[in-house]
């Protein structure tokens, strides 16, 4: 139970009904850093995030949130320390940006939950850092995908937590908007010291914006380390079953995968397969 860890899991098993998705997972998320979880489809990376975010109840094992056993905290106490952004959340029609962001104050409110001046200040702050102030009275469902994602991030920010979990925050966004969202998270991490944990599909974006990467396959951590340690031909071969070529990208000097091929199982030669 190291307190410099924002999250630690111990022997975590997560299952849907009888199918075990994640097996005895030990994972550490350092405080104040950006950590990305990568892995192939169905490897359990979203499941890990959900289990850590207590959306899924683990079959066995423990999750520690800044050193505390998460089961011993009330869900409201957890929400004061950790915000979660599910994949592609939807906002009810007619809800305005500032209303949705104000819902982020929920874990800090009591009773009927009238917004205090403090709450309002925090909502304004969240709108400001996500550059949404001019949209505050717009309805969420009239915004573009990138703006909408920023609204949800603003809601998570309004929770005023040290830790935000995001499940594929760039889904359905174009190149520019993907970058915009990740830049925003990066800025928040650097300026507000918010610990960020996210599941990302795009390896190169993960390598570019993360301090640490966790590569998962079949519910097990294959490799944990800095982007330079994780983005190697060997690791990607183990995790994705690909033959990847990794180079250092000139602008950010981060590793990128410039091209890759599929690896065939047990090195069957294509000609041999045809012959069989």
């Amino acid at each position: 139970m190291n307190c410099t860890n924002s999250i630690a899991t111990e022997n975590l098993d997560v299952a849907y009904d009888e199918t075990v998705i994640v097996r005895s997972l030990d994972m550490k998320i350092p405080h104040g850093k950006i950590t990305s979880i990568i892995g192939p489809n169905g490897c359990g990376k979203s499941t890990v995030l959900k289990a850590v975010g207590r959306i899924l109840k683990p079959k066995s094992g423990l999750v520690y949130l800044s050193g505390d056993d998460i089961r011993k905290l009330s869900t409201k106490e957890v929400a004061q320390k950790m915000a979660i952004l599910p994949q592609t959340p939807t906002a009810p029609r007619g809800l305005t940006v500032s209303e949705l962001v104000a819902y982020g104050r929920f874990p800090h409110q009591k009773g009927f939950g009238k917004l205090t001046p403090d709450d309002k200040k925090i909502v304004q702050w969240a709108l400001l850092v996500t550059k949404l102030t001019e949209f505050e009275h717009r309805e969420v469902d009239t915004l573009s995908g990138g703006q909408r994602q920023r609204v949800w991030i603003a809601m998570a920010l309004a929770q005023k937590t040290d830790l935000i979990l995001l499940d594929e925050p760039t889904t359905y966004l174009d190149l520019a908007h993907q970058l915009e969202v990740l830049e925003l998270l990066h800025d928040l991490n650097r300026s507000q010291e918010v610990t960020i944990v996210m599941v990302l599909h795009d390896l190169n974006l993960a390598a570019r914006f993360s301090d640490y990467m966790i590569a998962i396959r079949d519910g097990n951590v294959i490799k944990y380390g800095t982007p330079n340690e994780v983005m190697t031909t060997d690791v990607l071969k183990d995790v994705f079953n690909i033959d990847a070529q990794i180079v250092r990208e000139p602008r950010t000097s981060r590793p990128v995968c410039i091209t890759y091929d599929l690896l065939r199982s047990d090195d069957l030669n294509f000609d041999e397969v045809i012959a069989v």
Partner: peptide, 20 residues
């Protein structure tokens, strides 16, 4: 009604906001 507001966002989002 405040809880209903959060549940209307979906069960996962509501959990994230600290709703049982």
């Amino acid at each position: 009604s405040r809880i209903l507001n959060t549940l209307h966002l979906g069960n996962e989002t509501a959990t994230g906001l600290g709703v049982a």
